[in-house]
Write a protein that binds this DNA or RNA. Sequence first.
DNA 1: AAAAGCCCCTGGACGC
DNA 2: TGCGTCCAGGGGCTTT
Length: 295
Amino acid sequence: MPELPEVEIVRRGLEAALRGRRIVGLEQRRADLRFPLPEKFAATLIGRRVLSVWRRAKYLLLHLSDGQALIMHLGMTGRFTVAGSGRRGDVVLGDTDFATKADPAHDHVVFHLSGGTTVTYNDPRRFGFMLLAEEDTLDRHPLLAGLGVEPLGETFTAERLAKRAKGRKTDLKAFLLDQRNVAGLGNIYVCEALFRAGLAPRRGAATIATREGRPTARALRLVPEIQRVLTEAIAAGGSTLRDYRKADGSSGAYQEAHQVYDREDEPCRRRACGGTIRRIVQSGRSTFYCPRCQR
DNA sequence: AAAAGCCCCTGGACGC
DNA sequence: TGCGTCCAGGGGCTTT
């Protein structure tokens, strides 16, 4: 599933394809994705212009003319394909499989834009969703209001994270995965950031918390590693595991830089470590880590 | 309030 | 080849 870097790359691709264009038609091929599609979905969207495409955590936010916003989430397997006018081939944004072509049976929503561009949303598992909201109520939207700090924003600091971790009874891994604490991290990048920071995933979240009003050395180490892993992933075009491809349709390359994720029983890549990557399950999800490097 | 399960859904990988 | 089992990048919702 797409995490922050992948969603950000989708955002950029959508903005390039949609910005300034008008939605002139919309095909809704089923009543629901994860949630029922909004009533009057097509009627609300048709005729509006796309002013910009934003991202908050793993959500995509289309700002439309006349104060309307479209909230979208890719879930695990959502992807967009951009086709049309002046392009040599289709541009695939987000979750694709290694097969270039998505199964058209899972093409759920098709946007027709002015200028002849078509944007098709495909999502086999249908964990993704689309919702409408008034632009000026977005901050208060129930799905967005509780989200934590953007890890690539200036307000993401060791002080803030350490304060947030104070008194928590949960594992550090689960704490970082919780979107209310840090918005946009997923299973891959949490594992990768913890490895880079040398922190064991099972250690208690409170062990990075503020002590005597100051963030611990662990928090000071962790925050820049989170930022670095996300920034590098965006620069590399996101991770490709089963089904993610970057904007030009080629595979993202970041999985080649994974130090731990999906590397169970393989040697630790840190020089002179000699350890073996382990897989454990935390709150029902796989965690990969190096027991030697991460304490 | 916070933490831990459960569930939504399809498809790919693997073992037999 | 076919079938059963397990697993998957998310997150909302319910229960403890």
